[in-house]
Amino acid sequence: MMRQILPYPLLSLGMLALWLLLQQSLGLGHILLGTLVALFAGRALAALEPDRPRIRKPLKIIQLMALVAVDVLRSNLAVARIVLDGRHREHHSGFLLLPLELRDRSALAVLSCIITATPGSAWLEYDAMRGTVLIHVLDLVDEQAWIDTIKHRYESLLLEIFQ
C-alpha cells in the first residue's frame, strides 16, 4: 500500500522541497500543492520503472558530500594556478584508464558526476564489459597517485554506501 502511494519517497521529498523553494513560502496551500506535485512525480517515475537504488548506509552520504566539497575547492585552486601559469608549464595532461570494482549503476552515476564536477579530472567513457573507465586528467604528474585517490577516497566509500 505504502509502496503504491510513495514508490520513491526520497524523490517525492525532494520535489516538495524544490516546490517550496521555488514558491518561497511555507504556507499551507503551497505545502498541499507541493505534496500533490511530489506524489504525481513519484508515480510518474514509477511508470518508467527504473532500477531502484539500494542505499545501505545513508549517513555515509554526508561524509561523501563533505569530502567532495573539500576536494572540489582544492582542485579549483589548483586548476586556477595552472591556468595562470599558462604556456610556461610543461605538459602533464593525459588519459588514464582506471579499473573499477563498482558495478552498481547509480553508484557509477554518482562517481562520474563527482569526477567530472571536480576541476582537473573528467570522466570520458565507461566500459561495462571490462569495468574500466577512461578519465582525462589535467595535471597528470603521478598516475598511480590519481588511481589511488579515486579508488580509496571515493570508490571505497561508494562501495560501502551502495553495495
Binding site: 586548476v79 591556468v83 595532461s93 567530472t116 576541476p119 582525462h136 589535467l138
Partner: peptide, 9 residues
C-alpha cells in the same frame, strides 16, 4: 580535452 576542465571552475 584540457579545455573540458576549465568551465567547471
Amino acid at each position: 580535452y584540457e579545455r573540458v576542465h576549465a568551465p567547471t571552475l
